[in-house]
Design a protein around this nucleic acid. Structure first.
Length: 187
DNA sequence: GAGCCGATATTCT
DNA sequence: GAATATCGGCTCC
């Protein structure tokens, strides 16, 4: 499969909304948990808000790898955050997965979260519910053998683009994408 | 619900 | 030393 035909090889802010409605699945210990993505954010090349802005480093090197792979980083020293790498290898772009609605494995996700609501309505919570951590950085999300993968989901009718959350630079870019409709709202 | 704040690891100045 | 792509507990309403 050449890079140009890869589903996530395009420009990050065009790929990002296409992730809405897709199902992120984790399978550990024979238990499959999944969420349908409802909120994502694009982080691109020459983007001062992006981890890739200052070039490759030990932390962000996965961002500069091929598209469709999982980039996981630690946020505020406490939480894990998951991203889908986009664009051709070498570009350094990725989409942060901010929110999803539970699809399967709810009881396991509730155990991991220590509560039965608000299972994946935030980037750190989403990773905790799916048991995603730094050891999973670099996994190929489109590999059927991968314990963490992406699958097509129900269609998202429409989405809204707004400013990104929790950043202080590059705030002008409307690169946060939220699926419209009550069943897809964060929270 | 909104607003404040501490926890904590890694990067950057 | 300061900042950070967050969260949960706490106070107030």
């Amino acid at each position: 499969v050449n890079e140009a035909s890869h589903p996530f090889a395009g420009v990050v802010d065009e790929v990002a909304p296409r992730l809405l409605g897709m199902v992120l699945i984790s399978a550990f210990g024979g238990v499959e948990c999944s969420v349908a993505l409802t909120e994502v954010e694009a982080y691109g090349q020459a983007d001062p808000a992006s981890h890739s802005f200052r070039g490759p480093s030990v932390r962000n090197r996965t961002m500069f790898g091929p598209p469709g792979h999982l980039y996981v980083y630690r946020s505020y020293g406490i939480h894990w955050c998951a991203n889908v790498v986009t664009g051709p290898a070498g570009e350094g772009a990725a989409v942060l997965l901010r929110c999803g609605v539970p699809v399967a494995g709810m009881s396991t996700m509730a155990l991991r979260r220590g509560r039965s609501d608000h299972l994946a309505d935030g980037p750190g919570k989403l990773c905790q519910a799916l048991a995603i951590d730094g050891s999973h950085d670099g996994l190929d999300l489109l590999d059927p053998e991968s314990p963490i993968r992406l699958a097509p989901g129900g269609p998202v009718r429409s989405w809204t683009a707004t400013h990104r959350i929790g950043i202080t630079r590059g705030t002008d870019r409307p690169w946060r994408f939220v699926a419209d409709g009550s069943s897809y709202l964060p929270g």
